[in-house]
Amino acid sequence: MVIDLTEKQAFRERMIKALLFFCGMVSVLTTLGIVGILVFETWGFFQHVSFKQFFGDTQWTPLFTNQHFGIWALVSGTVLTSAVAIGTALPLGLLAAIYLSEFATKNFRLFVKPALEVLAGIPTVIYGYFALTFMTPFLQNFIPGLSGFNALGAGIVMGMMILPIIASLSEDAIYAVPPSLKEGAYALGANKLATIFKVVLPSSFSGIAAATILAISRAIGETMIVVIAAGQQPNFSFDPREAIQTMTAYIVQVSLGDTPTGTLAYQTIFAVGMTLFLFTLLLNLFAHHLRRRILKGHL
């Protein structure tokens, strides 16, 4: 049975199509706009500051009279907090995922998975105050010389924030391992732990790696926790007991401060933003690549 569209219906179809196309384009255009501004302002920045000053220095003091533009002082802060966060979240998240998929009862699993998502929904400003007013004083009991603002406390709390991402996505990956593989292992005289660690985890490696990368990119982009609890001190150091400043925290500092627009100090935030953008872009591309491999059935 063939039904011809009337003139009016055909017009409506075209309108709806156009509307949907427009909606789709909004996000594309927004992204292009943001990248365009970043590139433009970063280009402006590098008219005044050389690559050598940017990449060859470890001091970052654009707001002082003696200006230094060594991005490594901020990159180290970002890498340090993210590393502490992943160091906290990966083992805990993985163990949680293993427990949920291999040991927990079905009901417990159905209860905990949404609870994890609630944890992921807590505003990060609350995590920030938690890090400042609870985690740091708590850690100071064990770690003498831990300053009031430090990378360690902020990183650990950031780890709690990204824990649900790792636990939930890894759990999905582990749960997706075909039962036939586990049965194969059991039939070869493997016990449950050997089956999990030698068959199930390796088989879900891509999914776990993708979850980890996603969590790292969340950690790198995380702002509130580090603004509140890690100090605002560009510091080329990998000692987590010290106060540091991350790239994101620096951008906040300048955006909220009284730095006049158009000045070189103001332009630095775009150069920093660009660096941050490239970091997360690379990670996302890598995660995307892993996901494609999973979908294609490669591990």
């Binding site: 075909p178 593989l181 049965e183 194969g184 088989s203």
Partner: peptide, 9 residues
């Protein structure tokens, strides 16, 4: 088993 299930990794 019925379906060959070598360990994929």
């Amino acid at each position: 088993f019925q379906k060959p299930n070598p360990f994929p990794t």
